[in-house]
Design a binder for these strands. Structure first.
Lengths: 335, 335
DNA sequence: ATGAAAGCGCTAACAC
DNA sequence: GTGTTAGCGCTTTCAT
């Protein structure tokens, strides 16, 4: 990289001191119109760009927020990124994105990287492998504000933003019941994650509120397309197979759909399906998938706004907030 | 944010000078084992983290590469990000991701942001709106290495990495012909982008090599799901409707599929379809979509490796490379 | 084996 | 209205 133009260069060429140039560049009232204009003109002429690094060092502030997500590849996460970027952009912040790839080890390294890069705040949705949260505690020790979204943990000094999983699941399952299902299975992620916990509880509550029996026999640990195809083939062959399935995410529900097709089980007539995410794929399958929209974009915006608020806070001992976004059931052809 | 621990703090507590501490921290041979250990021990005790910002300023190097893409939300781009991150991670680089959202204005601002953040190099796939490339020229003036991928322009001092669109399109169309299509339409993006140009040419060549007539009547400007649904409804109602359609991306092909279903045109019997991307959605529709895999992950890796090589180069006047990744036809049920 | 000091680019308190 | 200077955290040359 070529040596970049600095205020020093401008100062030298114009015979001013660096401070004058610095002030002129930011329209300081003390500076005479003449010098200001001369300086600004030369600056653009030389292609001067302020060096953020120097500023960052000076101010101990990078105007950068760190983001750790499991994988960009999921529609839900990429729409969250969009929401975050929107807010960051509006407020002159930059975003550093790190993926944990669902690996705990990688996530720990990501946190290190963020700390060493001196980001002003961090947004996290942690990996499936993460059970220990001491790496996040480090950030908190540094008084770097932290906001968890989607996958959250409640016993840290950090805000949280989630969609109301309980409610979303309740809506979806209630809907399946109203459509006549009596035997509804749940395809769910590992239990330690609060999201699946909430969705599980919403599922259960909807059953119970509607006089159906909750049974662990109807609960399957499965949250990917591939697994869903595989296990559904046997599940759907059973004597008293489910007449409705609620899956924790769209791709899982779509996996079921695929298996059903192969077994020539008609969806929605013989089997009704609901997913969770409102992904692009959900609109594209046939029949289209009934699903729960989590408003990822909004969620990202909320999380980022909250983080920026925390960054501005004078006192790090703020009272943490737990924000919940109400999801919405999107009824389509699969139910 | 709390005041972070610096080498100064360590020096003071131990009664050493900062230079000794600095050296001890990096296992400098001059330092005695005793001091080294004392320093390193205290450092971990206090939770010392080197301040990258200071380093960046000192070295005029940020170990960060900038990435500008149209939208993370597309599977193709997110898989590219994965490839880029992989390489960056292995080489101790950080990635700053910016989205242009297909807006020229936004892209220009992204470039500014990158320049002011003093990234060591930049990876770009430019927006659909971008016809003027002077903002990239600025980066080149600064001697910041630039690698274009996917959407590229050839008359700048920058390397390019693309998948062989011509070849991919040729494969897809040739395949449709072999399957018996005689009247193959092309759904394509605006022509000024090299990608659609290449795909267009591959389409044309495949027709001509196989004794079919190329005609602009069979070319439609359409590259989104929604548009494809809309325009296909009329196109597929025509007297001599196409018996095969090749679309520049999967979602467009899937839009056609949707329209065909509504019109009760059987795919693949009455209409054969091929897309381009090998997205998640392509595996999920019924019938599954024949498509061209562009190996986004590999492409991202190649682009990032090349960029890092350029960053290390002593002389900015390197001879630019134009790398092409051979795509692969994935035949599925839609053809 | 360790320390002093300069410098990376910029800002701001303090002079004048 | 403009200049001088110190300092942000770190590395490194030059002393000792």
């Amino acid at each position: 990289m070529k040596k970049q133009v600095t205020i020093k260069d401008i100062a030298k060429q114009l015979g001013f001191s660096v401070s004058t140039v610095s002030r002129a560049l930011k329209d300081h009232p003390d500076i005479s119109v003449k010098t200001r204009e001369a300086v600004q003109q030369l600056a653009t002429l030389l292609g001067y760009k302020p060096n953020r690094i120097a500023l960052n060092l000076k101010n101990s502030k990078t105007n950068t927020i760190g983001l750790i997500i499991p994988e960009v590849e999921h529609y839900f996460f990429s729409s969250i990124i969009n929401g975050i970027e929107e807010i960051a952009y509006e407020n002159n912040y930059y975003v550093m994105v790190f993926q944990s790839n669902e690996s705990y080890m990688r996530e720990v390294l990501n946190v290190q990287a963020l700390a060493t890069n001196r980001v002003d705040g961090v947004l996290v949705s942690f990996s499936k492998e993460t059970h220990n949260f001491s790496h996040f505690k480090q950030l908190i020790d540094y008084e770097i504000p932290l906001v968890f979204f989607d996958r959250v943990v409640n016993d840290l000094h950090a805000d949280t933003v989630v969609s109301d999983d309980f409610h979303g699941a309740y809506l979806a399952v209630e809907h399946l019941i109203k459509r006549g299902c009596k035997n509804i299975a749940l395809y769910s992620s590992p239990r330690h994650m609060l999201i699946s916990q909430g969705r599980h509880d919403g599922y259960r509550k909807a059953l119970e509120d509607n006089g159906l029996v909750y049974s662990t026999d109807l609960i399957y640990s499965c949250d990917t397309f591939e697994d869903a195809v595989k296990i559904s083939k046997s599940i759907l062959k059973k004597q008293n197979r489910p007449d409705g399935i609620f899956a924790v995410n769209d791709m899982t529900a779509i996996g079921v759909l695929k298996a059903a097709k192969e077994l020539e089980i008609n969806v929605p007539d013989e089997l009704k399906l609901a997913g969770f995410e409102n992904s692009r794929s959900s609109k594209v399958v046939d029949p289209e998938l009934t699903t729960v929209d989590q408003f990822g974009f909004e969620l990202g915006k909320k999380a980022a706004s909250l983080l920026l608020k925390r960054i501005d806070e004078k006192d790090f001992n703020y009272k943490t907030e737990n924000i919940t976004i109400k999801p919405k059931l999107i009824v389509r052809g699969s139910s």
